[in-house]
Nucleic acid binder design. Sequence first.
DNA 1: CGTTAGTTTGACCTGTATCAAAGCAGGTGG
DNA 2: CCACCTGCTTTGATACAGGTCAAACTAACG
Lengths: 246, 246
Amino acid sequence: MNIAAKPACAPSELLARRLSSFRPLQADDLAPLSELGADDHAHAAGAELSLGQGETRLVTAGLVGEARLLSDGRRQIVALRLPGDILTPGYTANHVISALAPSRTLDATALLSRLGDPRAAPALHAAWAEARRMEQRAVLDHVVRLGRLSAYERTAHLLLELHERLVRVKLAQANGFQLPITQEIMADLLGLSIVHVNRTLQQLRREGLLTYRAGSIGLPDRTSLAEACGYALQLSPTEPGRRRAG
Amino acid sequence: MNIAAKPACAPSELLARRLSSFRPLQADDLAPLSELGADDHAHAAGAELSLGQGETRLVTAGLVGEARLLSDGRRQIVALRLPGDILTPGYTANHVISALAPSRTLDATALLSRLGDPRAAPALHAAWAEARRMEQRAVLDHVVRLGRLSAYERTAHLLLELHERLVRVKLAQANGFQLPITQEIMADLLGLSIVHVNRTLQQLRREGLLTYRAGSIGLPDRTSLAEACGYALQLSPTEPGRRRAG
DNA sequence: CGTTAGTTTGACCTGTATCAAAGCAGGTGG
DNA sequence: CCACCTGCTTTGATACAGGTCAAACTAACG
């Protein structure tokens, strides 16, 4: 039940969970996933991952970030990749992919090209397409956070998004999850200074909307938190596995 | 030579230009594009475009924006679509696609599904894949602008990006282009207030890095401008059609 | 020519950055 | 087992980029 360096479950199981969260899938739909080996590669926290041209890797544990570096040292993390997410090579020279916490990844180039083909595995393909859509959506949410939300809203919004994404791969509890990253990383994610991230987290705690210690985030009242930042919850606050009615 | 409401050229020619800017393409490679009719649909400035589920439209003239609306009226434009770009339905309820200037679009669902197939038209497919990559890259650039660049840098960075994108479809001059949008729209694009956009544009003008009147942008010194905001020019500043050596 | 939409200016305010220093671990070596 | 790093968090004081409010200016348009 956490994003540890040690894989909580087999890579294929992880992907199965994520894809099933988008489309109901039968056991035999999932068969192609079993081609994934268990030979994942470990990355220490902070290690940069370099993907070969055209290579696709599946994150199986930990937390990976894709960031853009500016010449004066500023950094913006443009995407967070959680277990079950995939990595593709960056677009520009200053685009770096690195493990934000001890992580594991696995080459999934072959499987992924199969998922992209509607003929090979229709059910998986549909679920995969939905997952891709969701990723697209997440980037745009990130744009809105950075462009139009206050520090307070940004932070709340991001935590809610992470929670929902982790629930899909069953790596979160109903009202909390592990987030083994420093406040500096949160700052680079949220486009804020470290100091301000710290103060914002304190405010959320003071208001009883957040608890955290030792990299463990608690969101005791996701409904209020969502209201406070305009986040549209996708999963029921009480039964996070279940899709919402509205 | 501008992004007017009247199409400057046939839709197929527009796509041909954009794709050719990514990969050299022969006349017969481009043949499949001719299936595009000329029956594009006009949209008044400000009009919202609603795409059917699964529908894909090609922008043939004007300027289209994809925005997210917040309940209190804040708006963030998450992507600008220029002639030669495509539109797909939004991901969320608050995602709206609207013409930012008088525009024209054309259904391209059939053609686009063909471009996605490597077997049907390999050369076009490769160019198209590259174009998609570039779009991805542009969104991430937008994230960096909003998250880590100052108002001044953001503005410069965006104008340079727009210029390069318009050059690809031959709708820009060597050092300028038409940008028929209000400063309010720029504000929603850049995550700034209208007033501050105005002041930032003035500063750029004062410094001789920008001229504009009547929706016409001039970038007399793209090299300096790029330096001022850390933009990595892709096209030669002197011969904007040609790929850069570095 | 009056109306309306957009731009520009000025005065003022506030959210967030910056700087600096003080706590607080957790790990290492003596 | 303590003393010491070293990296992270927290706090306080201060500065500034950019927001807000309000009004004047401009230009297009019927």
